[in-house]
């Protein structure tokens, strides 16, 4: 005995054996995991099973004991996990194609059943994923395209969740939520025709805006003209005969004289041939004696 105590090799081996024994007897069950204790492949009991509404600190997490070497622990995630459905082409009731991405969130609520039916979480995910896809396709196939883009979408999601949940319960899992992440028009003809529709709608809008603008411009101009006419008429109607004379005088100046360079006197390029009977030459003709 004395020799063993003083022999580090023996001590080391003993310590390792003890550690192995401790580790295969005691296990720490974290808050994030549920544990199925399996004896020779036969599930014996469940530790830290999920209970709805439990508080952390009062769960079954903690130290677990088992028979060393006889019992194994299978860990099963207690957290909410996700399964994704990537880019499925879905046909709506009115025969329009859609490309849909969806995800479902689930939690293992019956680890025993889950262990027996699926084994691991990954396996469960790959079993549920096609079911999510088919539930989605069934439900969307019953709805017209437009309802996908409407508040009824919520009801649709609930139907899908219910359908998926029926299957998931057989695996000991509970579907927390199903949601459509993307719902897009597939690239190619459907997307291109949507683009074309958008483009033509925009061009129509552009033309209409432009036409409205021109219409408004015309009205503004016409209003101004009308107002000018009214102004002129009000002023000139006081004495139409004087207006005629006054305006004629202005008109002669502008017609016969063109403006030359600024500062220079106006210069005309017109030849005027007057008859002596012209009114202007009246005094010239009649002489002083008239």
């Amino acid at each position: 005995m004395n020799r063993i105590l003083h022999n580090p090799i023996a001590l080391g081996i003993a310590a390792i054996l003890l550690l192995i024994l401790v580790y295969s007897t005691f296990a720490i069950v974290p808050e994030t995991s549920q544990a199925v204790i399996v004896r020779f492949g036969q599930p014996e009991r469940i530790l830290n099973k999920y209970q709805a509404g439990e508080n952390y600190g009062q769960t079954g997490a903690g130290i677990a004991m088992r028979w060393p070497f006889l019992e194994q622990i299978v860990w099963i995630d207690k957290r909410i996990r996700s399964i994704a459905m990537e880019n499925q082409q879905v046909l709506s009731a009115d025969q329009r194609r859609l490309e849909v991405d969806a995800f479902a969130r689930y939690r293992v609520v019956d680890p025993l059943r889950m262990y027996v039916a699926a084994g691991t979480e990954d396996n469960l995910g790959s079993q549920l994923s096609p079911i999510l896809a088919s539930a989605l396709r069934n439900e969307l196939g019953r709805q017209p395209f437009s309802s996908l883009l409407s508040p009824e979408r919520g009801q649709m999601m609930e139907n899908i969740q219910a359908a998926l949940n029926r299957v998931a319960l057989q695996y000991g899992a509970e579907i927390v939520d199903v949601r459509i992440k993307h719902a897009d028009l597939p690239t190619g003809t459907p997307l291109d025709s949507a683009y074309e529709r958008m483009r033509t709608a925009r061009i129509q809008e552009a033309r209409s805006i432009e036409a409205q603008g021109y219409r408004q411009a015309q009205i503004i101009k016409a209003d101004a003209d009308a107002e000018a006419i009214a102004t002129y008429a009000r002023a000139f109607n006081q004495d139409p005969e004087f207006y005629d004379f006054y305006r004629a005088m202005q008109s002669y100046r502008t017609s016969f004289l063109t403006e030359s360079a600024p500062g220079q006197p106006p210069r005309g390029r017109t030849n005027i041939i007057l008859s002596p009977n012209n009114d202007y030459l009246q005094q010239f003709r009649s002489g002083a004696g008239h």
């Binding site: 002669y252 016969f256 006197p265 005309g268 030849n271 007057l274």
Partner: peptide, 10 residues
């Protein structure tokens, strides 16, 4: 007007 244009009287 007549100051600056050619005027012919006939």
């Amino acid at each position: 007007v007549l100051q600056h244009v050619d005027t012919t009287i006939v």
